[in-house]
Structure formats: structure tokens, C-alpha cells
């Protein structure tokens, strides 16, 4: 994302600094990131430390795979008054291949967006007559990881036109709106400065393609909405709730920003 450079040039700021930034960015762009880069969009993987990448690359080392295993076990587990499991309706988990790439999506009967977590819960309440799983519970994270993992490597492909258009616009506005005592928008970090160090962290483009991710800092797996909450709190802004309309719209916009990037769930990040 070359915007940083042009912006600086525009303002005629400290030339020495601009040159430094440009040199870094060019060195970075020359690298071949394979599937982790689509046009000018790069997965968080490409900004991660080599040890973190290695951890993600090896399924046996990737601690996020423990959550996939939780999901796999639950897939066949009968739960709820209807006496069904996921497998009763969907058979093999392979039937979920390609499903995750289009979430969140507009659902006419809800007249709203729905993300994968909520879709899973709708199956539980409507089809299984079972209780919803709570956001960030090991069950909901486990099943979300498991279902997304079936689409591993497939390109993110959310629909942002038609019924989804107003949500997309809302998410985009959210993304670009300053908030919190530090008065920053998502774009300030993830569009203007990817690749730059912010104290000990290297900023990435803030893509959602690896979620739910295993975060070393969390010592566990967390959802995209958990990440949104963390980023909001970091600028000293009141976060929105898990599954809130605001975050759903944001999720749609974020997934669109990463269109074409491969599903990496469970990605490993620090």
C-alpha cells in the first residue's frame, strides 16, 4: 500500500524520513509472497515473524489446531431436543468446504448480516433445538475454526453489492471513523502504516482471512470480533459487543478488504 509515501510527498515533510519509508516498502514489495498476496493486499502472515509463520505452517505445531479438534468432536455430537448433531444434516465435514469464504453474508429471513458464528448458532437453535453457544466459548470458537478450516487456502469472497451494500457502506464508514481518546481510525494503522513498527509490533493490513486466529498474546484462539474489541480499546474507545450490528458490518468490510486472500484458519499471530 503505497499511500503512505504519496501522502508524505504531498505534505512535503521530512525528506530523509520519506526516503527511509520508501526504501523499506520497496524491499518488502519485491518479496514473493505467493498466495498470501493478492494484488496489493497481503495477509497478516506476510508481516508475521518467521517463527510465527513456521508455527502456522506446521499443523502439528499450530496450537490453533487444538480448537479444530474440539470442533471436529462436536461435529458428531448429538445435542438439543431434536436429537441431532451437525453430521445428521451435513454428513461429512467436507460438505463445509468453500462455505466460510462468503461470510458474513446477508440473510433475508433475518433482514441482517450474519457471520459464521451466528450461522452455526442458528443451526443449533433452529435445527437442533439446542442452546446457542456463547461468543468466545471453546465450543463456538472450536466449531468456527473447524468449519473455516475446511476452506483452507480458498480465496475470501464476500458479497458486498445488492442487499449487502448498505452494510458494506456502514462497515467502511466505521473503518474510517476516528474514535477513542487517541482519536484514530482503523485506516490510520492498517492502511497508512502496514509494515511499520509501532513500538514492539509490526503493523499489518488488519486482514480477517486467518480468523479465528491463535494469538500468542492471548495464549489461545479468538474471534475477529475479539480482535476488533482489542483494537478499539487500544485507542481508548468503548468497544461494541460481540456479534453487534456494528462489528458485523465491519467484519464484512474487513473481509472485503482481504478479498482473494486465502482462508488460513487457524492462523497464528502474535
Amino acid at each position: 500500500m503505497g499511500s503512505t509515501i504519496s501522502r508524505y510527498a504531498l505534505f512535503g515533510l521530512a525528506l530523509a524520513m520519506t526516503a527511509g519509508v520508501a526504501a523499506n516498502a520497496v524491499a518488502d514489495e519485491k518479496k514473493n509472497w505467493g498466495a498470501y498476496q493478492v494484488e496489493d493486499r497481503r495477509s497478516g502472515y506476510t508481516y508475521a515473524a518467521p517463527e510465527t509463520q513456521a508455527m502456522q505452517d506446521d499443523n502439528f505445531q499450530n496450537p490453533g489446531m487444538l480448537w479444530a479438534e474440539i470442533g471436529e468432536e462436536l461435529w458428531n455430537k448429538v445435542d438439543g431436543k431434536a436429537g441431532k448433531s451437525c453430521a445428521s444434516c451435513h454428513n461429512d465435514p467436507e460438505s463445509m468446504k468453500g462455505v466460510a469464504v462468503s461470510y458474513p453474508k446477508y440473510v433475508a429471513e433475518k433482514k441482517n448480516l450474519e457471520n459464521l458464528e451466528q450461522r452455526i448458532n442458528r443451526c443449533r437453535t433452529d435445527n437442533m433445538k439446542a442452546k446457542e453457544w456463547k461468543y468466545e466459548s471453546k465450543e463456538l470458537l472450536g466449531m468456527t475454526v473447524f468449519v473455516r478450516h475446511q476452506s483452507l487456502g480458498m480465496p475470501v469472497n464476500v458479497k458486498v453489492d445488492g442487499e449487502a451494500a448498505p452494510y458494506f457502506e456502514k462497515g467502511k464508514a466505521f473503518y474510517n471513523e476516528r474514535r477513542g481518546q487517541l482519536d484514530m481510525a482503523c485506516k490510520h494503522c492498517h492502511e497508512d502504516f502496514p509494515g511499520m513498527r509501532l513500538r514492539a509490533n509490526v503493523l499489518s493490513e488488519g486482514q480477517g482471512n486467518g480468523f479465528p486466529v491463535y494469538r500468542l498474546k492471548w495464549n489461545g484462539v479468538g474471534s475477529l470480533h475479539r480482535r476488533f474489541r482489542g483494537c478499539n480499546k487500544q485507542v481508548r474507545s468503548t468497544p461494541y459487543g460481540y456479534g453487534s450490528d456494528e462489528y458485523l458490518a465491519l467484519e464484512l468490510y474487513v473481509m472485503w478488504r482481504g478479498r482473494g486472500l486465502p482462508v488460513e484458519t487457524p492462523a497464528v499471530r502474535n
Binding site: 474514535r179 481508548r236 474507545s237 468503548t238
Partner: peptide, 9 residues
């Protein structure tokens, strides 16, 4: 003139 500042701040 700030937007949605955490209560504590």
C-alpha cells in the same frame, strides 16, 4: 469533540 471514548478517559 472525541468519539466514543472509554468511560475512564
Amino acid at each position: 469533540g472525541l468519539n466514543r471514548v472509554l468511560k475512564k478517559f
